[in-house]
Computed example of a mutant assay.
Amino acid sequence: MLKNFLVTFLFTLLILIPIAIAIDIAEKVDNFLQHPNLGLSEIVNDYYINFTIYYTNTFMPLALFLAVILFTTKLSNNTEIIAINNAKVSFVRFLYPYFVGATLVTFLSLLMNHFVVPNSSKTRKKFEQEYLASNTQQQEFKFVNDFSLQLTDSTYIFIKSFNTDNNSGYDFTTEVYDGLQLKSKLVADYITFNPKDSVFSLTNWRLRKLYDKRDFISSGNKIDTLFNFTPKDLIYKSALSQEMPSPELINFIDVSQKRGVKNLNAYLVELHKRTSLPIASYILTLIAVCLAFRKRRGGTGVNLAIGVGLMFVYVFLLKISEVLGAVAGVNSLLYVWMPNMMFAIVASYLFYHARK
């Protein structure tokens, strides 16, 4: 049973992936033709290989769900489940091969979600920004406006505008506090980052140090200094979280929280989703078996219709939970796991009746 079940799962997955690739090619062929220097090997190696990795991981729970319905319906139509029941095999024991297969898929999906897909997404996202993104989307990642950041417990920076493409900005301010008391303030008209030596160059700078009885004020045309941040730390876009392996993403969230970044829920949603979606394989497997183990009039078609309908409901709830979980001030963990909890209740109800 396990062997045939996994074969059905791979077959279902291999059907879904070419469909996704064909649809994507139809949508983006005009974009490819707009770049005469873009070769076929670059499209395949930089984009579609990574596209396949991403959607293979995305379709795993769906393919598993459909595979369980197809395989179990086939067993039911061939009256093999009746023979298993007559042999006094319990429903729990009947589920063993399914959950062994679901465990294999879950571990593979966890590995891909936390490590493989983020690294693959870096290359895919870079290709999309260079060849497929509109000018508006490119500008969104290029400029950072009205940004503030807490570097340490006592040091804060403020930037009016920063261009992450050429690593330069204007209206830069850094303030150092001792508790609530301002100790120094450095202001510059322009700031430039040199990635070779990680040094910031400040142009038209003015420094004011505050003491108990007097202030010290100095200024100059240009000065090189070090700060505990890089231009990458200025970009807080939820799409960037998809490019970070989980250890890097956890470290990024931890550092950002210490720096006083107000809303990191979009990053927390991405982190929690990498675990919740693979774990959903167990819940969806149980629901699929409970729906398909009984022989129905209409056979595979009815079971598939019910299964696809439930998958649409699950994906719909998943998208809603992601949007709501990214809102500031809410518990992102609870929202991300909410579709799993709701479907776990449905699975428990179906299991209770199926076992009888």
Score class of each variant (00 low, 15 high):
115 F>Y: 15
102 A>T: 02
117 V>E: 00
99 F>G: 00
67 A>M: 03
97 P>D: 07
71 F>N: 07
91 F>N: 01
91 F>Q: 01
63 A>L: 04
39 G>W: 03
57 N>H: 09
94 F>S: 06
43 I>V: 06
105 V>M: 06
67 A>P: 02
120 S>R: 07
85 N>V: 11
96 Y>T: 12
115 F>T: 14
113 N>C: 14
40 L>F: 15
104 L>C: 11
42 E>G: 07
101 G>D: 06
59 F>A: 04
113 N>D: 10
89 V>Y: 00
51 F>V: 06
101 G>V: 02
75 L>H: 02
101 G>F: 01
60 M>Y: 03
33 L>F: 12
54 Y>Q: 13
94 F>E: 06
79 T>R: 14
111 L>R: 05
46 D>H: 09
76 S>W: 00
88 K>E: 08
36 P>L: 09
91 F>Y: 04
95 L>F: 01
50 N>P: 03
35 H>N: 10
30 D>H: 10
103 T>L: 11
118 P>M: 04
71 F>C: 03
79 T>I: 11
121 S>R: 15
49 I>L: 15
88 K>C: 06
67 A>N: 02
77 N>A: 09
66 L>T: 04
47 Y>R: 07
97 P>K: 02
66 L>D: 01
53 I>L: 15
128 E>C: 05
86 N>H: 14
34 Q>P: 06
125 K>G: 08
60 M>C: 07
115 F>R: 10
70 L>Y: 12
74 K>M: 08
93 R>C: 07
38 L>P: 03
83 A>L: 05
61 P>G: 02
71 F>Y: 11
82 I>T: 15
31 N>E: 12
51 F>G: 00
86 N>P: 02
59 F>L: 14
63 A>W: 02
42 E>I: 05
55 Y>N: 11
120 S>N: 07
124 R>E: 06
128 E>N: 09
128 E>S: 12
95 L>V: 08
118 P>H: 03
40 L>D: 13
55 Y>C: 08
119 N>I: 13
72 T>W: 03
96 Y>N: 10
65 F>P: 00
109 S>K: 04
101 G>A: 06
82 I>V: 14
95 L>R: 01
117 V>Q: 02
41 S>K: 12
